[in-house]
Amino acid sequence: MKLSKKLCIFTILFLLSVLFIAPVRADAATVGQPLTSPEEGWQRFDSEDPKLHYEGAWFRETKGTAVNAWNHAENYSWGGDNSTIRFKFYGTKIRIISSTFSNKRTDNIIIIDGEYKTFSEYGSSSAWQSLVYEKSSLKPGIHTVIIKSSPDMTSSQNICLDAIDIDSDGYLIDYYQSPKLTATPGDSKVILNWDAVDGATSYTIKRSATAGAPYEIIGTSTTNSYVNAELTNGTTYYYVIVPVVSGNEKTPSNEASATPTAITNPDYIGNYATLVITMTNGGTKEYTLPVIDVDKFITWYDQKSDGTGKSYYTFTKASNISPYLRIREYISFDKISSFELKEFNQ
């Protein structure tokens, strides 16, 4: 009888443990294991997602349906050219999915929010859609990710990316976000200004005669401003600018438009004017400039007065002091008390 009671109690305790003790997930993948689909709480993005930016010698290798790569293809880079992938995402966790093989390295680089780590794609035998890196417990928010090949990678080695897994409610963000473009009309010209884009070496300026229509390239700029001159007053022009990073065009700006208008009561006459700036400490700065450069300064000042743009303006002057070719002078907006223009008759 006592034995029967003990068995009954044991059975009840066992059933309670099954019902109320949370089971450990048997499907939770670990680094080095194949992961052919995202697990619960995750979503997968292919390596061809347009929000991923590749820099260096990358190419897409199609494997065919017989090989279990995600979407049957991967992006590869061979040799030690310091190839890089950049992107941002919103979420709290990330997984890198790749193939593993004996010609891959153990010291590939991943940088998340400035924190430098390495990960391995090495395997004694080939395996597709393997989990090669995982980072969790990130603070909810936007995170910056840079993946780089090892600087010691040889021509017989490669790094590849198959897919990226992040939170099921997260999303990818373009690393090079679209710059904000403004267009200011002048007399027979339009002055363009935009936000600088990190990593951009130049900007392609495009124009159209109608809103949203196909654009034609009208010039390039290595700064974040451009003056489109010799235009027809009374005609509206539409512009976008495209940042160029490592030789590749990135996300275009918004479209901005302006209508050049003849100046009937100009602040200055002729091709040059002298700009006199009075500083808050009582000192003055004087610059004789082409009309176009005066326009740029006034545009910057007006935009900064409205709360946008850089906090300083740069004047570049030729130098007659050896060995310097030119001198750049930076004027802080909050140090300017007033300014005036002295007109030239010719």
Results as ranks from 00 to 15, higher is better:
residue 333 F to W: 11
residue 291 V to H: 10
residue 220 T to S: 10
residue 95 R to S: 05
residue 159 I to E: 00
residue 159 I to A: 05
residue 18 V to T: 10
residue 149 S to I: 01
residue 88 K to N: 12
residue 70 W to D: 04
residue 180 K to P: 01
residue 58 W to D: 09
residue 78 W to N: 05
residue 27 D to S: 10
residue 307 G to Q: 09
residue 149 S to L: 03
residue 327 I to H: 08
residue 189 K to R: 14
residue 146 I to E: 15
residue 119 F to C: 05
residue 272 Y to C: 01
residue 257 S to Y: 06
residue 235 T to W: 07
residue 72 H to K: 11
residue 3 L to V: 09
residue 218 I to H: 08
residue 98 S to M: 03
residue 12 I to A: 12
residue 170 G to W: 01
residue 112 I to H: 10
residue 122 Y to W: 15
residue 4 S to E: 14
residue 171 Y to P: 04
residue 176 Y to T: 00
residue 56 G to Q: 04
residue 286 E to D: 08
residue 132 V to K: 02
residue 68 N to A: 13
residue 307 G to K: 08
residue 130 S to I: 08
residue 151 P to H: 09
residue 93 K to M: 06
residue 42 W to S: 02
residue 330 Y to L: 14
residue 299 T to A: 15
residue 276 V to P: 01
residue 41 G to D: 04
residue 123 G to N: 08
residue 242 V to P: 07
residue 113 D to Y: 04
residue 175 Y to G: 00
residue 206 K to C: 10
residue 338 S to H: 12
residue 152 D to V: 07
residue 238 Y to D: 07
residue 49 D to S: 14
residue 170 G to M: 06
residue 329 E to H: 11
residue 285 K to N: 08
residue 68 N to K: 14
residue 245 V to G: 04
residue 142 I to R: 01
residue 259 T to K: 15
residue 210 T to Q: 15
residue 317 K to C: 10
residue 195 D to H: 03
residue 197 V to Q: 01
residue 235 T to Q: 14
residue 173 I to R: 02
residue 237 Y to F: 08
residue 200 A to L: 05
residue 345 N to I: 06
residue 150 S to L: 04
residue 286 E to I: 14
residue 59 F to L: 06
residue 296 K to F: 03
residue 52 L to E: 01
residue 229 A to T: 15
residue 120 S to K: 06
residue 65 T to I: 14
residue 243 P to S: 01
residue 336 I to P: 03
residue 244 V to Q: 02
residue 72 H to Q: 11
residue 63 K to A: 13
residue 201 T to A: 14
residue 264 T to P: 05
residue 131 L to S: 08
residue 29 A to P: 15
residue 1 M to E: 12
residue 193 N to E: 11
residue 226 Y to M: 08
residue 198 D to R: 02
residue 269 I to P: 00
residue 135 K to Y: 04
residue 90 Y to F: 13
residue 120 S to N: 06
residue 27 D to K: 05
residue 309 G to E: 04
residue 95 R to A: 09
residue 62 T to P: 02
residue 144 T to R: 08
residue 66 A to C: 02
residue 300 W to H: 03
residue 80 G to L: 02
residue 61 E to Q: 12
residue 142 I to T: 12
